Amino acid sequence: MWNFFNGGELGQSDHRNSGTDQMRLSGSITEKGYYDQLTRSWESIKAGNGGIMKALESHFHEITSAFVLGCTPEQSEDIYTILVNGQDIVTIEISRPERIEVSFSTTSLRDYRRQAKSRQRSIQLAVALDLSKSLTRP
C-alpha cells in the first residue's frame, strides 16, 4: 500500500471556528497531529504520488486543496476518502500496481459530517476544513 504520511512539515494555521456547524479547534496535540498528517497528504497528492491527483483532475476543474481523511487497502486497490477544495468529500478507488482510477464517488460534506460519529473523525474533518480555508485565503 502506498503511504501518504511520509515526510512533510506543518505550516502555521490559526485555530478558529469557521462555521456554526463546525467543531471549534483548540490547538490540542491531537489537532496538531492531524495538521501534520493532512498537510503531508496534500503535499504527496500535489507531487503526483499514487495517481490521486490525476484522478481528481479528471473530475474537478480546479484543485486548491485535497486532504486524505482515510485510506482502506483492499486486495488489488486502495480506497481513499478525500476532502477536496474544502467542499467535496470524494471516495476514489485506485488500482494497484497501475495506480489508475477504478471508481469515483462523492458525498456531501453535510452527509459526511453526519456519518463521522466519532470525536476523532470530527476533529480530523475540522482540521482539514481549517487547512483548506487557510490555503484559499487571499
Rank of each mutant, 00 (worst) to 15 (best):
D36K: 14
E57H: 10
K46D: 14
D36R: 13
G70A: 08
E9F: 15
T39R: 01
I92W: 11
I45S: 03
W42S: 03
S122G: 14
T39G: 03
G19H: 09
P97E: 08
L83A: 00
K46N: 15
I82E: 00
G11H: 14
R99E: 02
R40F: 04
K54R: 10
H15G: 09
R119D: 06
T81C: 07
R110G: 07
S105P: 05
T106S: 12
G7E: 12
Y34Q: 12
R24I: 15
W2F: 13
Q115T: 13
E77A: 15
G50A: 12
K133S: 15
I63N: 09
R119E: 13
V68I: 04
R96D: 05
L56E: 01
H15Q: 10
F104V: 10
E93W: 10
S122K: 15
A116P: 04
T91H: 01
S76E: 15
S105Q: 08
R110S: 12
A128L: 05
D130H: 13
H61D: 13
Q37C: 02
S44L: 10
F104P: 07
E98G: 12
E43F: 07
G33Q: 05
L38I: 02
P138T: 06
S13V: 11
D21M: 06
D21I: 04
S44P: 05
S65K: 01
S26N: 09
S26P: 04
T81E: 07
Q120S: 11
L69P: 01
G86R: 07
